[in-house]
C-alpha cells in the first residue's frame, strides 16, 4: 500500500472541481447546475480540510472555513431553488438557454 499524501487529496479535489465545472457549463437544467455548484463547493472544502490536516495541526482554521462554506452553500442553494421555482412559474421552463434576456 502507498501512503496517502496531500498531493493525492489535491488531485482528487482538482478532479472534483473540474467535473463540477464541466457539468456547470454543459448542463441545461438549472437544478443540475445547482448540483454541480455543490460539487465544486465540496472540492473547495476538501482542499481546505486537506491543507489543515497536513500543514496546520494546531489552529484548525481550515476546518472552521469548511463549516462556514457548508452552511453558506446550504443557504445559497435554498435561495437558488426558490428563484428557479419562480422562474419556472413565470416562464414554464427550467432550461438555462431560455433564460437569456440580457444580451448585446
Amino acid at each position: 500500500m502507498f501512503n496517502i499524501t496531500l498531493l493525492h487529496y489535491l488531485i482528487l479535489a482538482l478532479i472534483l472541481f473540474f467535473t463540477g465545472f464541466i457539468g456547470l457549463i454543459t448542463s441545461k437544467n438549472t437544478i443540475k447546475i445547482l448540483i454541480f455548484i455543490e460539487i465544486m463547493m465540496s472540492a473547495i472544502n476538501l482542499n481546505f480540510i486537506a491543507f489543515t490536516t497536513f500543514k496546520n495541526y494546531i489552529f484548525l482554521t481550515g476546518m472552521v472555513f469548511a463549516v462556514f462554506i457548508t452552511a453558506i452553500s446550504a443557504l445559497q442553494s435554498a435561495i437558488a431553488i426558490v428563484l428557479i421555482y419562480l422562474i419556472y412559474k413565470n416562464k414554464e421552463t427550467m432550461k438555462s438557454e431560455e433564460i437569456e434576456e440580457i444580451k448585446g
Binding site: L24, S96, G104
Partner: peptide, 17 residues
Amino acid sequence: ISRIQNGNIQSYISYSL
C-alpha cells in the same frame, strides 16, 4: 464581438475560466 455577450450565464463562466 457583440455576439460574445449572449445572455447565457454559462458561457460567461467559461469565458472567465
